[in-house]
Structures are given as C-alpha cells and as structure tokens.
Simulated scan of single mutants.
Amino acid sequence: MEIRGAGKIARSAARGLKLVAGDDEIKSVEELIEKLKKASKILIDTRPTAVSLANSVRFVTGDLEELSENADLGEVREKIISRAEEFIEKSEKATEKIGQIGARRISDGDTIMTHCHSTNALSVIKTAHDQGKDIRVIATEARPRQQGLITIGELAKNDIPVTLIVDSAARFFMKEVDKVVVGADSIAANGAVVNKIGTSQIALIAHEARVLTFIAAESYKFHPSTLVGELVEIEERDAGEVVDPDRFPGVEVRNPAFDVTPAEYIDLIITERGIIPPEAAYELLQEHFELSSEGEIF
C-alpha cells in the first residue's frame, strides 16, 4: 500500500524487474532467470486484484525460457531492461491519451463525481479543466484507506473546484452530478469492472439517476484470464484498517478492497485506443492476448 493506483503499481513492477535485470551480482543467465521468476511471483502476490500488475510482469518478462535461449547474460539483461522501459513509457503515454480522449465527453459546466484515486480519471478531469471547461468535482473519501484525500489534494493543487464527501453520501449528492468518472483495477471480458470498494454502489446510484458513468483505464487493465471464464480475485485486506479488532472481541470484521460493477451500469470505457462500450471488452481482450487451444493465455 506504499504505492497506490493500478497504473502506478504496474509501472513500479516494471521498474522492480528492471532493477533485478541490472543487478551486477548476477553472474549467469540461469541465475537471472531464476531471480526474475522469484521477483515476478513476489510482485504479483502483493496485489492480486490489480491485473495491471500481472500484465506488466507478463509484458516485461514474456517467455523467459525462450528469451534466454542462445543468448548471453548481457543480451537477456538488455532485453528485460528495454521491455521495462517500453512498458513504463507506454503506460505514461496511455494516461495522457486517455485524458485527451475522455475530456471530449466532459461538457462545460459539468459536475463530476469520482471515487478513490485514479490517475486516469484525474487525467480526464484535469485535461477538461485545462481546455477551459468550467467544471467542479465531488470526490468520495474512499474508506478505509481514504485515497480520496489524494484525489482532492491533486485537484486543489490544479485549482479545480472540489467537494469531499463521505462514501455513504453518494446518493445524496447524485442529484447534482452530470457524469461519474472512475478508474479500474481490472476489466473482465464481459465488460464488468473491478475497482475500489464502493464503486458498484456509485454506478448503481448513477444508473438509477440516469447519470452517465465512465471508466477510464489503460488497455492493460483488461483481464486476460476472464476470456476462459476465470473470476477476478477480490483482495481482502487486514481488518485493522477498519477498526482495532481488540476493541470488539468476538466480532468478525471484513475488509474487501474492491467490488465488481456489472457492465449494465457502465456507459463507456475510455482507453488510450479510444472509447468503447463495455460489451466490446471481449474483442479488445482478444486483440491483446493470444488464446491457445489449451486455454493458456500468453
């Protein structure tokens, strides 16, 4: 939790693998491959829901055995470092592009509700503001870790009018909202979106109020395993983030970090490749990931 935000997590994973590849104490290709495999597992296990992390590792390492075949240590190092730098650059450019594409859907005078902290959602909002559009933002605090405070800090720093509300006040304020813009940690093949806990309630409230809900996410947030029917693992964090369990002995405290928003509550998904309806998630996933006859995704 030192690094928060799916895109930042993915880029940090790429930087971590780059550090492993550049370790001068590694003296053979075999040792490097083993170290990369170990680092990849450690990284992926830290945040199981954020598929951007796994996709980042997949992009950087690829097929390690094939990569090392007939190659010397220097060549393998260079390839891993090059891939890591390529991923980081593509990720940063994707966020910028999402802001440009998404801002077209923001109108002058809009009030936007956002939840938690999303670099991509903020890119859309900041770009619209930079274009001279008169907008204001209603941001939730995102209990229990209060990532919403990061969001309001960035908005205030950019002189964008913002109001902070508690998560449970979303329905009360929805009557003032023109559009909901949030990020995503994972997007399934059926268009369902996994994001910070509370997102599904906001999307449902917006749907009920006929307020458009936009998801801002890079294409590497789409989850390849859902092509073959696997479910996205929902990370459940320590109960101590919610309350000190010792204060209430015998009481079970649950702390899921994410929830799933059904595709029918989402109007558009904004990616660096353009805007798609949630129903088009399957096609986008097929374009990005090859599916073998054994159901293994590369």
Rank of each mutant, 00 (worst) to 15 (best):
N190Y: 03
L149I: 11
V193L: 02
I266H: 08
I150Q: 13
G274F: 07
R105Y: 15
H115R: 07
L231D: 15
I26L: 02
E279Y: 11
E141K: 12
F258C: 05
T95H: 10
L227T: 07
I26G: 10
S56R: 00
G22N: 12
F222H: 04
A192M: 09
A71C: 14
S118N: 10
A280T: 09
F298I: 13
K126C: 12
I80N: 06
A189W: 02
V180A: 00
T61K: 04
H117S: 12
A142L: 07
L32W: 02
E236W: 03
Q201H: 12
A13P: 01
T271Q: 05
T111D: 06
E279R: 14
T213E: 10
Y220K: 02
S52I: 07
T271N: 04
A139Y: 04
L285Y: 04
E241W: 07
Y282K: 13
S12D: 15
G250F: 09
L32K: 00
R237E: 07
E235N: 07
I275F: 03
K157P: 01
S107L: 15
I26N: 01
A21W: 00
P48M: 02
F298R: 14
R247D: 13
L155C: 07
I33V: 14
G22F: 07
S82W: 08
I98D: 06
I88E: 13
H115Y: 10
A71H: 14
E296I: 13
E31F: 03
E2W: 10
D244W: 00
E236P: 03
E241V: 04
Y265D: 11
I3N: 06
R143I: 07
G240M: 03
S91K: 00
A170T: 12
K133L: 11
R4S: 12
